[in-house]
């Protein structure tokens, strides 16, 4: 599991400190923490509980109710496949399966190297482009299984390029 560093402890405290210690702050605090860390750690939820004077179980029970919250760090490249009605009717399921097959993980999971994660979302507001997938914040419309391959390949190529650049940089510097 991901270790929480002292710096992160500090960051969590800052997030929590911005809100009044009342029950109504619970969801906004959790949102702030997730904004910061991209997920909710057990440690963060315990701290929230202490701030609000409720049990960690209570915090967890609320957090798990809502789809927005995740409890594991997402991949560096978070893939979201839209399975809203329009995308479903136009084959969103097939796109999701292709991502799963290509990356060898299921929806809700992150690859072992922490590079990719896959989630499903409902209607991202551009049904005219269905089926739709998101890579980070960028929307890719009119998806097709062949485009799935291209997208992932593109990321790998970009990563290799960056590594080459980095290596070049380092050899130049030394």
């Amino acid at each position: 599991m991901h270790e929480i560093s002292a710096e992160e402890q500090q960051q969590i405290a800052v997030c929590i400190g911005a809100f009044a210690p009342k029950r109504g702050s619970l969801v906004p605090i959790l949102q702030r923490i997730q904004d910061e860390f991209a997920y909710l750690s057990g440690e963060a939820m315990r701290k929230v509980a202490a701030h609000l004077g409720i049990t960690p179980g209570e915090v967890y029970s609320v957090a798990t109710f809502y789809n927005q919250f995740r409890f594991h760090p997402p991949g560096k490249h978070a893939i979201k496949v839209c399975l809203g009605t329009a995308c479903h009717v136009r084959g969103g399921e097939v796109i999701l399966e292709n991502f799963q097959r290509k990356l060898g993980i299921r929806e809700g999971q992150t690859t072992e190297d922490k590079e990719f994660s896959i989630d499903r979302v409902a209607c991202v507001g551009c049904c005219a482009l269905a089926p739709v997938a998101l890579l980070g914040d960028k929307v890719y419309g009119h998806m097709a299984p062949s485009k799935v391959e291209g997208l992932i390949l593109g990321i790998h190529l970009e990563k290799e390029r960056q590594e080459r650049e980095k290596a070049k940089h380092e050899s130049n510097n030394s």
């Binding site: 009342k22 029950r23 109504g24 702050s25 619970l26 969801v27 906004p28 959790l30 949102q31 609000l52 029970s61 609320v62 109710f65 809502y66 789809n67 927005q68 919250f69």
Partner: peptide, 25 residues
């Protein structure tokens, strides 16, 4: 502004109030 955390049932008014108050919707 209050940001909803993505639960369909929170569109229902009494569930929405629960969620603003910091409970499960």
């Amino acid at each position: 502004l209050f940001q909803g955390s993505g639960a369909f049932v929170c569109g229902e008014e009494t569930a929405m109030i629960q969620s603003i108050e910091g409970y499960r919707g």
